[in-house]
């Protein structure tokens, strides 16, 4: 193994880890606050990616300028589903939310397939000249992904630390009962959790499509590594989710030195199972 190959894989790992992190923040907070594993999160990523495609093809925008449309689309879908379906199930039988979200994942994917079909798509065709830094090759899309993720993580950090809404979100995620007795408006925090989770998922979806391609199943296939990242970092811990995403992303890429790349999901799964055995509360001590 050469050092250059290793470094190159490390860079790819950080890139795919960034995408995982953006998805895992939402999964972790929703799991922490609403107490269920949201299986339709990957499909919110797909919704975001395809909304951006609509803006790129319909309005002729460059893909980065189409990101607000992606966020808007995914947020409207997520809040709409929460208010029409999840909200009612929350009150009666929370555990049913898991089944409902699984069904919702299938339905969202079906809608995308009906509108856009099942063929692979890209935002823009043609070869883009990569940047070279020493022996490491970096596509322009990768630079956008890294910069965009850094920006969003900083924004999430400021939001969680400085705004009262962000503090309420962390409080509810840490201890729902304690948060409620301090007079936090739970429904309002829940809606904003969906806004944030779906918005980040939409950007993750666009980034994923920039890195690879668009397909109705693209988001669903990210579910396993995203759950692994959220569990690794600790459920309900947004910073843990970021850390978990980066670790899973890097581990998946480095595993290709020894394993067939087809087994990347198995690597994420193995890390998750190992974590569930030795430390189910995750690295940052989240909820079980």
């Amino acid at each position: 193994m050469y050092l250059a190959d290793f470094l190159q894989l490390l860079v790819y790992g950080v890139i795919s880890g960034s995408i995982l992190a953006l998805g895992a923040i939402g999964v972790s907070l929703i799991f922490g606050i609403l107490r269920f594993a949201h299986f339709a999160h990957g499909d919110l990523m797909t919704v975001g990616a395809f909304c951006a495609l609509a803006a790129v093809t319909g309005l002729g925008l460059p893909v980065i300028a189409a990101i607000p449309f992606a966020i808007l689309g995914a947020v409207v879908v997520a809040v709409g589903i929460d208010q029409t379906i999840y909200r009612r199930l929350r009150r009666t039988a929370p555990v049913i939310l898991l089944i409902s979200s699984f069904g919702m994942a299938m339905a969202l994917r079906a809608v995308i397939q009906i509108i856009w079909g099942t063929q692979d798509r890209v935002y823009q065709s043609g070869i883009q000249l990569p940047y070279r830094i020493g022996d490491i090759v970096l596509q322009p899309a990768h630079v956008w992904i890294l910069a965009g993720t850094a920006l969003l993580v900083a924004a999430v950090h400021l939001f969680l630390q400085k705004t009262s809404l962000g503090k309420a979100m962390r409080a509810m995620s840490d201890n729902m009962d304690l948060a409620r007795v301090t007079g936090i408006n739970a429904e309002r925090v829940i809606i904003w959790t969906w806004v944030m989770g779906a918005g980040l998922a939409a950007v993750a979806g666009v980034f994923l499509a920039m890195d690879t391609r668009l397909h109705p199943t693209m988001g669903w296939h990210m579910m396993l590594p995203i759950f692994a990242a959220a569990i690794l970092g600790g459920i309900g811990k947004p910073y843990g989710a970021i850390l978990g995403g980066l670790i899973i992303g890097v581990a998946q890429e480095l595993s290709t030195l020894w394993l067939s790349p087809a087994y990347k999901p198995a690597v994420a799964f193995a890390i998750m199972v190992f974590m569930l055995i030795v430390r189910p509360q995750g690295l940052l001590g989240g909820r079980r």
Partner: peptide, 26 residues
């Protein structure tokens, strides 16, 4: 591994197992 945890973890783990079984046979 998962039965002592909340059942959400079993849901996630079984999805993973199904995917890995498929990958192995492929």
């Amino acid at each position: 591994v998962t039965i002592r945890l909340r059942t959400d973890y079993l849901a996630i783990a079984t999805i993973g197992i199904a995917e890995i079984v498929r990958l192995v046979f492929m």
